[in-house]
């Protein structure tokens, strides 16, 4: 994805100002996944594999419907099935399409040490550019949603691109295009929020009083959002985080401490320089040398 056709607003391991003078007038984009409409058919999973030329191994059944069982470098999105008995005693089968959330404040990008391996376009999509990826896996540690996967084949990180290649030419992502129920929609983030609001109203009218939009502020909002029946309990949806944010550990690791540490090293070196130039070297004078030889002689002559 080197020859990207989208404008970049943020790039991993880069400290200079990115070109931001121009940005989409319509705002950023978003994919809205209406969990309440999703029937878990996995068409999106299949479309993703087809469009992106991904072919995972044929695995095995582990006693659940989730297949593959987890995200992999070849499976950028998987359906997560959770059986939940609500307080009324009725069963709910909550099916969530898992994958990259395209955080406005992406932990992966923050963590990435390789310039240009992770970029965020002005439209909000967070994309991995594998040719710049060094395979260190920092993005894995950085991501609050446990999304990126490093391929054993080429040691590069992979995840949902939000079909940046399609979006760049004005098409919706492959999974959106294929979703038979219209559970996934795509558009400007504003439009998606409006659409979500309608859906939430419908859900509320059906007794889901806590229906709501999942667009967590902790990561600055996401460009993949969910409509949830139980927005008050995201963890019901296969452990979706209630209040995700970049881990404080990662914040500390990748925050201000880093430049400070660099400065610390520089200061240490400079301190040496100044010490040397102010105090000067610690040398052994001719006299000291002679004294030492003399002393040595004396000692040697001492009786043992």
């Amino acid at each position: 994805m080197a020859l990207q056709s989208l404008d970049i607003k943020r790039m991993s391991a880069t400290t200079v100002q990115e070109p931001v003078a121009r940005s989409p007038v319509t705002g950023t984009v978003a994919k809205l996944i209406d969990v309440s409409k999703c029937i878990g058919c996995k068409a999106c999973q299949t479309a993703c594999m087809e469009w992106n030329d991904l072919r995972d191994e044929v695995g095995e059944t582990t006693g659940v419907y989730d297949n593959p069982l987890d995200l992999t470098p070849q499976s950028w999105t998987v359906m997560r099935f959770s059986e939940y008995e609500n307080p009324k005693g009725d069963l709910e089968w909550l099916i969530r399409k898992d994958g990259c959330m395209h955080c406005e404040d992406p932990g992966c990008l923050k963590a990435c040490p390789s310039p240009g391996a992770i970029v965020q376009y002005t439209n909000g999509i967070v994309d991995f550019h594998q040719e710049n990826c060094i395979g260190c896996g920092y993005c894995v540690a950085g991501c609050p949603f446990n999304v990126p996967r490093i391929s054993k084949q080429d040691d590069r990180a992979y995840k949902c691109t939000l079909c940046s290649d399609r979006v760049a030419v004005g098409q919706e992502p492959a999974c959106v295009k294929t979703c038979p129920t219209g559970a996934i929609t795509f558009g400007t983030k504003e439009d998606m929020k409006e659409h979500a609001a309608e859906r939430i109203e419908d859900l509320k009218s059906r007794g889901f009083s806590n229906a709501g939009l999942y667009n967590p502020a902790g990561v600055g909002g996401t460009h993949v959002m969910y409509v949830l029946h139980h927005a008050d309990q995201p963890s019901l949806y296969h452990g979706l985080k209630s209040d995700p944010s970049i881990s404080p550990t990662v914040g500390l690791w990748k925050g201000l401490t880093k430049p400070l540490a660099l400065a610390g090293m520089a200061v240490t070196a400079l301190a040496g320089w100044f010490h040397y130039s102010r105090i000067g070297p610690n040398e052994v004078s001719k006299e000291e040398e002679a004294e030492a030889v003399a002393e040595a002689k004396r000692i040697r002559e001492e009786a043992p």
């Binding site: 996995k42 999973q45 299949t46 594999m49 087809e50 095995e60 059944t61 297949n67």
Partner: peptide, 23 residues
């Protein structure tokens, strides 16, 4: 199952990936 069409999509890789084994 939604992932397969009868007895023939088990010959297709994509379908087999998303539902790999009898249960």
């Amino acid at each position: 199952l939604t992932e397969h069409f009868h007895f023939w999509t088990k010959h297709a890789r994509l379908n087999s990936i998303i539902q790999p084994e009898q249960f």
